[in-house]
Computed example of a mutant assay.
Amino acid sequence: MHPRPSLLWMLGRVVLFLCVCLPTEVQAHPLKITTWNLDWLTDRPSDDPDLPADIPHRSDHDRERLRHYAQKLNSDIIALQEVDDTLSAEHLFDPSLYSVIMIPDPIVQRVGLAIRRPLNVTLNPELSALDVSRPHAQHHLRAGLDVTLHDGDASLRLLVVHLKAGCWERPLAERKHSCPTLYQQFHIIENWILDRQDDGMPFVILGDFNRRLVPNDPLMKQLNSDASLTLTTAGYASPCRGGKRFIDHIILGNSAQNWLIPDSLRVMTYRDDRSQKGLSDHCPVSVKLSLP
C-alpha cells in the first residue's frame, strides 16, 4: 500500500503549480488604432448646395453595409475623415460602445475620432493652422484634431489630419497640382512634432495625407530631419488601391515607436461585397500598439 500524501505536501504541490502556470507579469492589452476616410459620409439630401454632384449618395442599405465593416473592424481608436457630423458617424459606430468627437469646422468633410468606451481623451486646441486657405476662400481645408488619450498610467497624443489632395507623388519643386499647399501643411505638422519633441509625449499622427509617403520621399525626410519617426506603412502597397502605395498613414513618434507590435499593419478590404459602390474609396488602415 502506498502511503497517503500529507495535507501540507498537497498544498505545496498546489502552490508550485500556481507559480509555474501563472504569468510573471500581466500582459498589456493591445490597442488597435485605425484611420478610415469614409468618402463624403453625410445624411444631407443630394440637392444640398454644399455637396458636389458627383459624390456618393448612400441608401440606408449602404449605411448598414458600412456599419457591418465598422463592427468587423473592431478597433479601439478610429480616426475619421470626410464625415459630416457626429450623427453620421454614430450610424456606423454604436454610441453605447464608442464616443465620437468631430472637429467643429464649418465644412462637410470633417475629421473626427471614434473612441471605444471606457477609453477617454482630453481635447487639445485644434491644429487650425492646417487650414492654409485664404480667409474668404470659398472652400476651406480641414483643421487637425488633437487629443491626448489616457490609458492607465500611459498617455498618447493623437493628431488626426486630412491634407490637401492633388500632390500624391510629384517632386518637391512642383509649383502646381496643390503641391505648394501640401508643403505648407507639412511644415505645420513639422512644428507640431517639434513641440512633441520638447514635451517628450509619445504621439501618433494619422489620417489621409494625400501623399504616397515612403522613407525617401522629400516630405517624409523633412519630418524625419527633426525627429525619429516610424512610418508604419513604409515598404507596403495598399490592397485597397490596386497595389499602389498608401496615402492613408499612421506615423509614430517618441516612445510610441517602441509600442508598435511588429507586423500588426492591416488593411480591411470590402470582401463581403461584390461591389464597392456605396461604401468608400478608402479602406481602414490599422496598427496595434502595446502601451506600457
Rank of each mutant, 00 (worst) to 15 (best):
V20L: 13
V20P: 03
P23I: 08
E25Q: 04
E25W: 08
A28P: 07
A28F: 06
S46A: 15
D47G: 05
P49H: 04
L51R: 03
P56R: 00
Y69S: 01
N74F: 07
I77L: 15
Q81H: 06
T86N: 00
A89W: 08
E90M: 11
E90Q: 14
H91L: 15
L97G: 10
Y98Q: 02
P104C: 12
I115S: 03
L119D: 10
V121A: 05
P125K: 11
P125F: 04
A129T: 13
P135W: 11
H140G: 05
G144L: 11
G152H: 06
R157H: 12
K164N: 00
P171V: 08
E190N: 14
W192Y: 12
L194G: 06
R196H: 08
R196I: 00
Q197N: 15
D199K: 10
P202Y: 08
V204M: 11
R211S: 08
L213N: 07
P215H: 06
D217N: 04
L219E: 03
Q222A: 07
L223F: 07
L229P: 01
T233K: 03
F246Y: 11
N258Y: 12
W259V: 06
R266W: 06
V267A: 02
R271F: 10
D273G: 03
Q276F: 14
V287P: 02
K288E: 14
K288L: 15
